[in-house]
Nucleic acid binder design. Structure first.
Lengths: 239, 239
DNA sequence: ACCTGAACACCGTTCAAGT
DNA sequence: ACCTGAACACCGTTCAAGT
């Protein structure tokens, strides 16, 4: 609603239009109003411009959407400085992938079917590969494990975001009846009792943080024990 | 192009319009022409009808898209009859989730951000829960593991499909130079050599079948060893 | 150099009217 | 009961024209 902070004047110190600013604005707009609400016309208006002007910065809406994914993925954090065990590196990478996606729930569905690989993404991945090899993990193995964990974290975050959007996920202090009603709104009314109960157990009463860590623990434990099966997965601390 | 098998006559035995037929046609159309090409007008034409007629069967395009996901997920296979070990059940479930998604590459991106839970989906999940408990796995643990594996398989298939669409994945017999050119088309030209090499290792020379099984093996090995860490993950056969 | 008006084809959707 | 013509608001995109 509020268009300009300064009243009455001309352009309120509009900070110059650039490709980066257009992409940022698109990301913010989609996060705020939902992806379907994003149109070139409205994004133009948001930037104080007429909509077709945007074609000076992005070749098409398709390219705009790619750029939004690019900006989102470029928010990936580098691993913390200092040495870390390779299982901790795996965990750190997975957590930071999940965090970035969950920060942009409305935009995250674009990740599927839009294979954008920003430089920053590769830089971060490379830093994790190095962290793992520095701890003695062979490089090929590191890439393999990071790929598996990336895919898991991305899949998990996408499911999580879409469950959250449909209010499938539990709220802090919620009685069972309310939980029941939430989840039964998601499945057809004709569903038998035991399947409704299963749906509730699948997502209706699931602690997403804990279950994310559980799946991650499985993969880490599997990769610690797997090359020959002799290492107890609880050897290392985790978290 | 070909509209009617019978030439000249009136409506060529059009088999009655129903919600199911509309959804099927939408799925087929999107798989054939891509999701962006799907419009109510064109889908109507495909069905020998005028486009707005579809609103008698689906309330809106949004509902149509939900229905397409529903139809896709309803293709999930039940586990084979007979007993199986619970690790094999986990593997079977993951593989069949991946298979369904890979069968509909153009439609699969809809899975993200569209939390549809068809009855059939719950029935299949329930069947796997039962297969696992029949092999001695506690029921809560079964749900937990199946959820982790579901999310992994879905995330993997979505990544796979989008990499395939952008021709990031390797072809059968391909010389390294060609692989190099394929992948470098995906990343900005400014990317340094070692990051391009990393991108190639990430998806450009990755055997998706093998890497899927690898991630799955990690989770299975982790879940076999994890409750107390004493079981060798190679105790069971796999495949 | 950057923005806009006018215009285009196409889209989702409604509704009164046809058969 | 099922389909359609006509119409609407909105969308992506182009391009010649403005400043």
């Amino acid at each position: 609603m509020v268009k300009a902070a300064t009243a009455g004047g001309r352009s309120p110190a509009r900070p110059r239009l650039t490709r980066e600013r257009v992409l940022r604005a698109a990301l913010d707009y989609a996060d705020a109003h939902g992806l379907p609400a994003l149109s070139m016309h409205k994004l133009g208006a948001e930037l104080g411009v007429k909509g077709m002007s945007l074609y000076g910065y992005v070749a098409s809406k398709e390219v705009l959407l790619d750029g939004m994914v690019e900006v989102m993925l470029a928010e990936l954090d580098f691993p913390p400085a200092g040495r870390m065990s390779w299982p901790d590196a795996l965990r750190g990478y997975a957590r930071s992938v999940r965090a970035v996606i969950c920060r942009h729930p409305a935009v995250s569905p674009l990740l599927a079917g839009r294979p954008v690989v920003p430089v920053r993404f590769l830089e971060v991945l490379d830093a994790y590969v190095q962290a793992m090899t520095a701890d003695g993990c062979p490089e090929d193995r590191a890439v393999q494990l990071l790929r598996a964990v990336l895919v898991y974290a991305q899949g998990y975050a996408l499911a999580e975001v879409s469950w959250a959007a449909s209010q499938a996920l539990p709220e802090p202090d919620e009685d069972p009846l309310r939980r029941f009603r939430r989840v039964s709104a998601l499945v057809p009314g004709s569903v038998p009792d035991h399947l409704l109960a299963l749906a509730i157990r699948l997502c209706g009463e699931c602690d997403m943080d804990a279950e994310f860590e559980l799946g991650l623990d499985l993969m880490v434990a599997g990769s610690e024990s797997c090359s020959c099966g002799h290492v107890c997965p609880h050897r290392r601390a985790g978290t």
